[in-house]
């Protein structure tokens, strides 16, 4: 998978992320309810709310993650699909990450 490019406003974005104090691994009922409900509505096994830090992708809330990943809620930013969303600043629709995304997205952390 191609590593996502760094957005032009990266420093400001990271400063804002830091200020919002969200990169903290603790249960969050409000967000967890949303990810669980989205998984149900869209009939998907996994639903996540990701935050892209300098080096990592942190799943602030997640539903359906494998136990091992659920324990850390963190993957390297380089293998995160969400890094591409942050760079583009737009919604990205990937019908089948392993096929349609091809070289760009194959091998991303969501290949679970």
């Amino acid at each position: 998978m191609l590593t996502a490019q760094i957005p032009a406003n990266e420093n400001e974005r990271l400063a804002e992320l830091d200020r919002l104090e969200l990169m903290i691994a603790q249960p969050d009922v409000a967000f967890d309810r949303v990810t669980a409900e989205l998984a149900h509505v869209f009939d998907v096994p996994v639903s996540m709310m990701s935050l892209i830090g300098r080096e990592t992708c942190f799943y602030k809330s997640a539903f359906g993650l494998p136990e091992e990943l659920d324990a850390t809620r963190t993957v390297p930013r380089g293998i995160s699909m969400c890094g591409h969303v942050v760079h583009s600043g737009q919604m990205m629709v990937v019908p089948a990450a392993d096929e349609v995304g091809g070289a760009v997205l194959r091998g991303n952390a969501a290949d679970i």
Binding site: L38, F42, V44, P45, M91, V93, P95, A96, I112
Partner: peptide, 20 residues
């Protein structure tokens, strides 16, 4: 691994945007 291809309608995209 979940390999079930999915389509997402514009309305569903709108819903996701609203949730975000």
């Amino acid at each position: 691994m979940d390999v079930k291809p999915r389509q997402i309608t514009p309305r569903e995209q709108g819903l996701l945007k609203m949730v975000a």
